[in-house]
Simulated scan of single mutants.
Amino acid sequence: MVIIADVRHTKVEARKAEAWKKAMINFPPIAEEEAFVGPLIVSAVMGNHPVRRVYVDTGSACEIMYEHCFLKLRHALRKTKKNISCPLVGFTGERSWSLGEITLHVTVGTIPMIRTEMLTFIIVRSDSPYNVILGRTAMRKMGIIPSPMHGMVMFSTPYGIGCIKADSQEEYCCAHVEVTEDKPKGELPNKVEGPEEKLFINDKHPDQHVLIGRQLPTEFKRKLRSLLKKHKEVFAWTLADMTGVPRQITIDGEKFDTQHKLNTRPHVEPIKQKRRSLAPERSKVACEQVADLVKAGILREVKYQSCVANPVMVRKHDGGWRMCVDFTNINKACPKDCYPLPKID
């Protein structure tokens, strides 16, 4: 009978200990003009690391930690990462593969109204203004109830109802989306402004620029701009500026041959690839680029070809086209280097 009484007492204590998790959570009424506009960006403590820019996303089925945040954790925590090979499927169906997963203690709220749980994060390599995304799994486990209209999240704790207000200063970089006009097919949308800043140093070519770090001090930017404008002739602004490398150079009266020759296998005959048709847009751009290279003296016409390779048009990040050449046959005809370059990080 004593054992039965102890078991019943333990169950009653457990029910009392869990009673605070069933506390009722109510949000106060709010006028429409006072409603919060922006995503729910909060702060939390993860593995004893204070982490900002934590996005509470009700549409995410898992917890995400971006690689740039993971790399800032202590080495002891990074060593606990587990390698997994599960794909993440986005809203539009695109797939991205994770770099692994890590389990951390996550604490939200302010003392004494805090809630701590163990959460597993999937590590993803992607450019994002956020450090971490808390999905529905974390909300269910930590009892988080979000209210985008109030700009806050509430959760139950042993000492009452905890509350976290969204960081309003993150609204601009995380939530501001400009409405752009519909672009023609094939034209890429404008990219989000990155950590680089455009610098125009040649008045004769106002459409060309160089990139410098946006985080540089103002005085350093001014000196750097003055230095680049002073030595702007070192840049090739047009194809005609690419004068090439002389076939011979003289150093201390001694001549050195600078010509390059492919080391091909003697038994391999030159291959003439069959002509591949390009789409009208790509063909037009390729013809324009070839005409510019011929005009600058970089290319010349060859009437009797021994080896022919097709051009390949590759889309650039700014929406333009880059003309490349399919050198797969030439690569097969050349022996591989037994001493390749070391891995450069």
Results as ranks from 00 to 15, higher is better:
T10M: 11
P189M: 10
L227G: 15
D167V: 00
I3F: 15
R265A: 07
R78M: 06
Q169I: 04
D182F: 11
G100R: 01
T120L: 10
I30E: 07
H209N: 11
A31I: 06
F121I: 01
G162M: 02
G194M: 06
S156W: 14
T80L: 13
K343E: 14
T58F: 00
E219S: 15
A279R: 12
S147R: 10
M1V: 10
V192K: 11
D6P: 04
P246G: 08
Q259F: 02
R214G: 14
N48K: 13
F200D: 15
P158Y: 06
F327L: 04
E254P: 00
C324K: 08
K261E: 04
S60V: 04
L239H: 06
R136M: 06
D241Y: 02
A5K: 12
L299K: 08
P50R: 08
Q215A: 11
N131M: 06
R52A: 01
I3K: 12
S128N: 11
V314M: 09
R15N: 14
A61C: 09
L228F: 15
D337E: 10
I84G: 15
E94H: 07
C174V: 11
P217Q: 03
C174P: 00
T137G: 13
K332C: 06
S168V: 09
M152N: 00
V290T: 01
S43H: 06
T92Q: 15
C69V: 03
R136S: 12
P87F: 12
K21R: 15
Q248K: 04
R15D: 13
G47Y: 03
P29A: 03
R214K: 14
C338S: 02
G109Y: 08
I122H: 02
M24E: 09
A236I: 06
P28V: 09
G59R: 10
K232S: 01
L71Q: 03
K81V: 10
